[in-house]
Design a protein around this nucleic acid. Structure first.
Length: 296
DNA sequence: CTAGGATCCTGTCAGC
DNA sequence: TGCTGACAGGATCCTA
């Protein structure tokens, strides 16, 4: 999906285009994509957008909120005076809407917001604003990379010491916000092999991994708005932000930007995984580093 | 408790 | 062309 940076981008965009606007009518094309009564949402003004990890919260004036999770293929496309689209990149960004993949349509006083989702894993859920933070999904989220301390992160790695590090950082209860792209990019940036057992990382490596996660997601958020805008430019230019900044993700066969070695695609934790076999060694043999691990 | 695999669903692409 | 299986920017549920 849309990982944390994309949801942040959506939040910023919708705040700009939809804040203060009124939802006049909700049309549900797929029952499982909209959980709760549409009546609670209709006629309501949008008073705020919030983000918890990869979940977007839309607060309404009547103290009702919508929790939106895009999962793998969700998209939010606002079509008003201009079009603002974000989420899973696809032709839908520039296509006629609604279409076959439109699951929910919000008719607003100023335009239309479309929730599209090819695989129907995502959802919009109606909940009282007061209960948002008690929602099971949100309650279980760990801290985001910018917030988590090295000590807390390292402790969590120890709790999952026999699982590959990639699987552990994909777990939103360990660290929140990373998905398949940024997990690969962060591990590459920190020069850590995704199959390394979480318990084998030194505190220094754990710290570097957090820093790298912040770095790659910051870069994405910074460019996110503009790349998404580029994507829906009037000329139909397709500017997939992956091309712009991903170093390894979907770059198998291309040279590593750091050392020139060919990037490989492997499978870790059941997910396609991209690495530089030179920069990300599976076995750490440096004796001094090992000593550091023992002492922690 | 952890680790790993199946599963939800639709669409696309590679390989016959 | 048509079929088949693998796989996909996520998270949960089930099993051992």
């Amino acid at each position: 999906m849309p990982e944390l940076p994309e949801v942040e981008t959506i939040k910023r965009g919708l705040s700009k285009f939809c804040l203060g606007k009124k939802i006049l009518h909700v049309k549900v094309f797929c029952e499982k994509s909209f959980i709760g009564p549409t009546e609670l949402v209709e006629g309501q003004e949008i008073v705020g957008f919030r983000r918890f990890g990869k979940a977007l919260i839309v607060d309404l004036k009547n103290s009702i909120s919508m929790m939106i999770h895009l999962r793998m293929t969700g998209q939010l496309i606002y079509d008003g005076k201009e079009r603002y689209a974000a989420g899973h990149p696809s032709e839908n960004f520039v296509a006629e809407l609604p279409n076959k993949q439109t699951r929910v349509m919000f008719e607003m006083d100023s335009g239309t917001l479309y929730f599209n989702d090819q695989r129907k894993f995502g959802f919009v859920k109606v909940i009282p604003t007061a209960e948002v933070e008690d929602d099971k999904f949100i309650k279980n989220l760990a801290k985001e990379p910018w917030e988590i301390s090295v000590g807390e992160f390292y402790q969590k790695l120890q709790r999952h010491k026999n699982a590959p590090i990639k699987a552990v950082i994909l777990d939103q209860k360990t660290i929140c916000g990373l998905g398949n792209i940024y997990a690969d990019e962060a591990l590459y940036d920190a020069e850590i092999h995704p199959k390394r057992l979480a318990g084998s990382l030194s505190t220094v490596e754990a710290e570097n991994l957090i820093k790298s996660a912040c770095k790659v997601m910051d870069a994405s958020i910074d460019s996110g708005g503009s790349t998404m805008a580029t994507y829906v430019k009037a000329d139909g230019t397709k500017g997939d932000y992956l091309e712009k900044f991903a170093k390894v993700f979907r770059n198998e066969g291309n040279p590593c930007p750091r050392c020139g070695t060919e990037i490989e695609k492997i499978k870790v934790a059941g997910r396609g995984t991209h690495i530089c076999p030179q920069c990300q060694k599976l076995v750490v043999v440096d004796c001094d580093e090992r000593k550091g691990v023992e002492n922690d």
